[in-house]
Amino acid sequence: MVVALVLRVVHAALTELQRLDSRVRRELEQMPEGMGYAVETGYRAPTLYVRWSGGQLQRCAAAPPAPCCALRLKNLPLAFLFCTGQMGVAQAYARHAFTISGDVADVMKLARLINLVEAYLFPPLITRRIMTDIPPLQVNPLRVYGGIAFGFLCNRYRLSR
């Protein structure tokens, strides 16, 4: 349940940061139309499927068609560490915590986005432990939290059809 919630929050944070952080906006806007990402966390475990379409990062019910890059965490305990700020992206890679299907270059883009999301969502006490370098924040994290809360209230992050 924690993993499922965090995956929803990651999508919500990316949606908000597209507006608030120029680096997130740049990464997203450089994606080809229809580019998809799948984050899977184990057998019958929570997933996050997103697709860049019409200038928005849409959440999908199933894995998007190609081009799609899939990052699969090898089991749920690893996904828990990954989603709760106990293991960063680079650490997860170094510990063989996930497999990648697709172009590694696309995963690097996703890794940068996740690092930015974590920098906003987690306090420095946590980010210092899980990142080699913490990206500087462009806005107060409270604005991101506030945006996410408001977005959930307005059902802004619903599944796209």
């Binding site: 992206v89 680079a90 590694v104 270059a105 696309d106 995963v107 690097m108 890794a111 080699t132």
Partner: peptide, 13 residues
């Protein structure tokens, strides 16, 4: 270069 997989494990971002 910043999209090369080798960069993810470099000791400094």
């Amino acid at each position: 270069a910043v999209n090369d997989g080798a960069l993810i494990v470099n000791p400094r971002a």
